[in-house]
Structures are given as structure tokens and as C-alpha cells.
């Protein structure tokens, strides 16, 4: 089982998600972001960078965070990427349509690009379907797993931009689950964390 750590900015939704026993069971370490500079990540295989961290502290500690991929480990970045913390994602803002499912012949617009990928033994497209805050245009050589039909990617795996692996998704399941909001996000986390721990990445 891979050792997974998650960065934690001490807010209520992160607390609810990361300390929920069924998810905490997959977390080797919950790293309080203000203490990151005095914490070792050397024993960590996968570092989750959730969507609602204190952004200036992330920027300040970027060398430590990128150290995980630079030594061959994996970083999972959740949510919008309005900062250039991780290389090559080419994130573009999209106005969030919270309401697509109320429309006639509702379609989320999301499609699986690689339905045979190991991740989809753990989650299905509906588990990854709520809304998104933007899209990525990943670098050549990255594998797109979920994309918006006719637009960019909302989840991809990049093994070309760094010596390690970047798993980038615009989805923010830890925010919604921790805010008691959006049931699909619970199914997403229930499959996604075991895949990170033991699946084929």
C-alpha cells in the first residue's frame, strides 16, 4: 500500500474529510500546512494537495512540495489551479454551471477518454460528475482520463513534466464532502483513495 499524505490548512471541510475514519484509514499523514517546513515528506509516496489551502503558504513551500515528484513520487492536485504551482497544466477558468442537471436533456458534458484505465475499476463517470471550475490543456504525452466534450481535461496523469507523476483534476471532492454537499463526491473519494493506495497509476 502506498503511503499517502495530505496537506491541511485547518478549515472545517478539510477537517471533516481527512478525519473521517473511512478516508483517514488511507492517510499515512495529515500535514498541517503551517508546519510543513518542519515535517518530512521523505517517507511519502503520494502527496495530495487539496483545493482550499492557504495559497501563499503553498507558494512559499513549493520546493518542499515539488520535492515529492522530483524524487519520483506522486502529487495529486485537486480543484482549480489558478496558480502556476505545477508545470504544464494550462488551466483555464470556466464559469461554473451548478445547474446543468436542471436543464432539458441534461448532460454534464463529461466523457471518459480511457474507460479501460485502472481508476475506473474504482469509480465510474457518475462518481466524478458534479461541476468543475475550469479545464486543463495537458502537455503532450500526458494521459487524459476525463474531459469535457469539445473542451479541455478535468482529470489527467502526467509522467512527462517531472521525474515523478502528477495527477491533476479540477474536481474538488474533499471540499464538497467536507461541506456536507454533493453525494457523488463521497462515492468519488470512496473509490479514489483506495486506487491511490493500491491501484495501477
Amino acid at each position: 500500500m502506498r503511503k499517502i499524505a495530505v496537506l491541511y490548512s485547518g478549515n472545517s471541510h478539510q477537517h471533516r474529510t481527512f478525519y473521517e475514519p473511512k478516508y483517514k484509514a488511507y492517510l499515512h499523514k495529515i500535514v498541517y500546512l503551517p508546519e510543513l517546513s518542519s515535517t518530512t515528506l521523505d517517507d511519502v509516496d503520494v502527496l495530495i494537495v487539496p483545493s482550499q489551502l492557504h495559497q501563499r503558504q503553498v507558494s512559499k513551500n513549493l520546493d518542499i512540495i515539488m520535492g515529492v515528484v522530483n524524487r519520483g513520487g506522486t502529487i495529486v492536485a485537486l480543484g482549480a489551479q489558478s496558480q502556476n504551482w505545477f508545470p504544464g497544466h494550462n488551466w483555464e477558468f470556466r464559469p461554473t454551471n451548478f445547474w446543468w442537471w436542471l436543464e432539458k436533456d441534461a448532460k454534464s458534458g463529461l466523457i471518459l477518454r480511457q474507460p479501460e484505465h485502472d481508476l475506473f475499476r474504482y469509480i465510474n463517470l457518475l462518481d466524478a460528475t458534479w461541476h468543475y471550475h475550469g479545464v486543463f490543456f495537458p502537455p503532450v504525452g500526458a494521459e487524459t482520463l476525463i474531459e469535457v466534450d469539445g473542451d479541455g481535461a478535468i482529470m489527467y496523469i502526467d509522467k512527462v513534466s517531472t521525474p515523478g507523476t502528477l495527477i491533476m483534476t479540477t474536481l474538488d471532492p474533499e471540499y464538497h464532502y467536507g461541506s456536507y454537499f454533493m453525494p457523488a463526491t463521497e462515492r468519488f473519494l470512496t473509490g479514489f483513495l483506495p486506487w491511490l493506495a493500491e491501484g495501477s497509476i
Binding site: S9, Q52, L53, H54, Q55, R56, Q57, A80
Partner: peptide
Amino acid sequence: DSGTYFGSQTTRKEQENPDTYVIDIY
């Protein structure tokens, strides 16, 4: 100011508000 992405819109709005002073939580 929590310093988070979702908080940044409110922070920008409050920074323009003459009634309000904004500080970083830390």
C-alpha cells in the same frame, strides 16, 4: 482572509471596501 482560492473573491471585494481592513489569518 483565509488565504484560500474560494475565499479570494471575498477578500478582493473586502480590500476595496473602505469600511474594512483585511488581514491574513496568520
